[in-house]
């Protein structure tokens, strides 16, 4: 997946000022940068969630497997590019099982009952949540801890079999132990799909990602292998940021 000259904003306020980047398949790319630099907007453009808010603008190119995302049906696109948000947002009126099944059921792509059950179980296993919830699948999702809810949201996103998973600061509302579990999960999931993770935590980027993008004021300052960014950054601003002299 890649973006070319991507510009996006809210009304007259341009947040992304021409970003070009490439997110490699079956790898984790982390996006770091100070708050307000446009990193959330960037991932929200990747599955066209950006345009669901009123008054938003977007131009440039987002390419998924050689096809321009802007020419695709956004609803179907989002089944291929899943997303997990900052705060866990399970559907409060649904059970754990129904939450995971929701994408399949609401899109009418579930087969029979047994296939649905199989896919829910598989998704929960992928999100390493199965063992914790298998005895209470029918209970409300709100009974889970914050970390469990976030993994439930990951399972929900995985259930529709996306090719790409976008994680928008998935650990910002979680404690360190729950954060560690999500990070393990990310490392596990990258064997299967492309992952883009936005984080304000540089240690987290260093721990989970293969590539790191550093953004500042709506521009992509530097994009290279994670090891390079954190040890030999080529841009002065990147160096200032990763060594903590900035932001």
């Amino acid at each position: 997946m890649e973006v070319r000259g991507l510009r996006a904003g809210y009304g007259s306020n341009e947040v992304l000022k021409g970003v070009t980047a490439r997110f490699l398949e079956k790898a984790v790319t982390a996006i770091i940068g100070p708050s307000g630099c446009g990193k959330s907007t960037l991932v929200r453009c990747l599955n066209r969630m950006h345009e669901t808010a009123p008054g938003t603008t977007m131009s440039g190119q987002v390419v998924l497997y050689g096809r321009d995302v802007l020419s695709l049906d956004p609803v179907v696109l989002r089944r291929h590019v899943g997303m997990v948000f900052q705060r866990p947002n399970p559907f409060p009126n649904m059970s754990i099982f129904d939450n995971v099944a929701s994408g399949l059921v609401l899109n009418g792509i579930a087969g029979g009952r047994s296939e649905l059950e199989g896919r829910v179980e598989a998704s929960l296993r992928q999100a390493s949540l199965w063992d914790e919830v298998k005895d209470r699948l029918r209970r409300s999702a709100l009974g889970l801890s914050g970390g469990q809810q976030q993994r439930l949201c990951i399972a929900r996103a995985l259930a529709v079999s996306p090719n790409v998973l976008l994680l928008d600061e998935p650990c910002s509302a979680l404690d360190p132990i729950a954060t560690a579990r999500i990070e393990e999960l990310v490392l596990e999931l990258k064997k299967q799909l492309t992952i883009v993770i936005v984080t304000h935590n540089m240690q987290q980027a260093a721990r989970v990602s293969d590539f790191t993008a550093f953004m500042l004021l709506g521009e992509l300052v530097e994009f290279s292998a994670t090891g390079t960014i954190f040890t030999k950054p080529s841009d002065k601003r990147t160096e200032d940021y990763v060594t903590g002299r900035f932001g």
């Binding site: 969630m49 696109l77 989002r78 948000f85 947002n89 399970p90 009126n93 609401l106």
Partner: peptide
């Protein structure tokens, strides 16, 4: 109904009208 629930639905590739009918309205029922 929190905006986050609408986003969660849309991000799953569910069309807006289904998000409203199947997620938003039941949450406010």
């Amino acid at each position: 109904v929190p905006h986050a629930l609408r986003e969660a639905g849309l991000a799953l590739g569910v069309p807006r009208w289904k998000v409203v009918l199947r997620i938003v309205i039941p949450s406010a029922a």
